[in-house]
């Protein structure tokens, strides 16, 4: 059935075709709305079928995402979406699978599944909506909350250091790692398009504003008049430059990367971004450039390297063994240990 379908042209769809009949129930003003809109507007252009698209989520505000998509979808349990998606992707490599979750879902309770999903490189697009707070449980600190943050569960200030999601993904051997934010639909759509096209596990961190429990967490870098100076757009093959006059650039140092004045170092000494580099060290250094979203912060694709995709490698093994030995016969299996006649 699926083969026949695939040979036919993908029917044209509009945004409305990708919207489910369910009322969207995020708080008014939530950054999740703009991400949902960006994706619903984008999907008609990706040449995919709704019935072949599946959204899998865990628990949290972001994890309500599947209910609003007119595709197949599963709202599962806290942290486990990458694991469930892995099983589905291995069983059904014909599907287009998106995993959506927040920073608590994916980096706290589900951290183990996230890193292993990235390590294995099973084909799926993992969208982490990072708002640096627990929203659905009404305002506790999250694993990406900044040190010192005062929340309901850290009234005297948060003691621990946050995770840097891009660093975590790179450390987990992710083959596609990118960052965008909820204030720039065009950029989001570019990144989602790239993530979707990447064969393997794609990881996209989206800075997402929680206007109820952590309002303005990213405002210093994402508000319109700040972006030029605070967002460093990574473009493959180009020197990394930013600033309203493109007056700043990134240079490589003995210990990583740092920001320099282009007029002082010269454009030729700027780091040329290479997202395909198999060694993730430079991408990792870039991920460490900003300590938090109040310093100039790289956005875009940090890494897009070619690695073997897990589901196809696994199905190759199944097919390879089947070809070598012939399709298994139950009767032969039952007679495969020493037998005797009575």
């Amino acid at each position: 059935m699926t083969d026949v379908m695939d040979s036919e042209a993908v029917p044209e769809t509009s945004r409305a075709d990708w919207q489910s009949d369910q009322e969207v129930r995020w708080c008014p003003g939530c950054g999740d709305y703009s991400i949902l809109t960006a994706l619903q507007l984008l999907l008609p252009d990706l040449g995919v079928r709704r019935e072949k698209t599946v959204f899998i989520s865990g628990i949290g505000c972001a994890a309500r995402f599947p209910y609003y998509m007119n595709t197949y979808g599963m709202h599962s349990i806290h942290g486990r979406a990458p694991a469930i998606a892995t099983g589905l992707a291995l069983a059904r490599p014909d599907l287009d699978i998106w995993v959506v979750g927040g920073d608590g879902d994916m980096l706290s309770i589900g951290g183990n599944h996230l890193i292993h999903a990235l390590r294995r490189n099973t084909n799926m697009n993992i969208l982490l909506f990072n708002n640096q707070i627990y929203g659905l449980t009404k305002g506790q600190f999250s694993p990406t909350s900044e040190t010192g943050k005062v929340t309901k569960s850290s009234p005297v200030g948060l003691i621990s250091e946050p995770f840097n999601p891009i660093s975590v993904a790179l450390g987990a051997e992710a083959s596609f790692v990118a960052r965008s934010h909820d204030m720039d639909r065009k950029h989001l759509q570019e990144i989602f398009t790239r993530a979707h096209a990447h064969p393997g596990a794609s990881f996209v961190e989206v800075y997402q504003n929680c206007n109820v429990f952590n309002d303005g967490a990213f405002a210093e870098i994402t508000k319109k008049d700040a972006r030029d100076d605070m967002l460093i757009n990574l473009i493959h093959g180009e020197p990394i430059q930013f600033g309203s006059e493109r007056q700043f650039g990134i240079v490589q140092t003995a210990n990583g990367v740092e920001i320099a004045n282009v007029s002082e170092v010269g454009i030729e000494s700027l780091l040329v971004h290479d997202e395909t580099r198999s060694d993730p060290s430079t991408a990792f250094a870039l991920s460490r450039l900003a300590k938090g979203p109040d310093e100039p912060t790289p956005v875009g694709v940090f890494r897009a390297a070619v690695r073997e995709e897990y589901a196809s490698a696994m199905s190759d093994q199944v097919m390879g063994v089947t070809e070598e030995r012939g399709k298994g016969e139950l009767k032969d299996l039952l007679h495969s240990l020493p037998t005797w006649e009575v």
Partner: peptide, 9 residues
């Protein structure tokens, strides 16, 4: 989780 994902598929 993976087994359940496969079942779902």
């Amino acid at each position: 989780g993976a087994a359940l994902g496969a079942s779902y598929g």
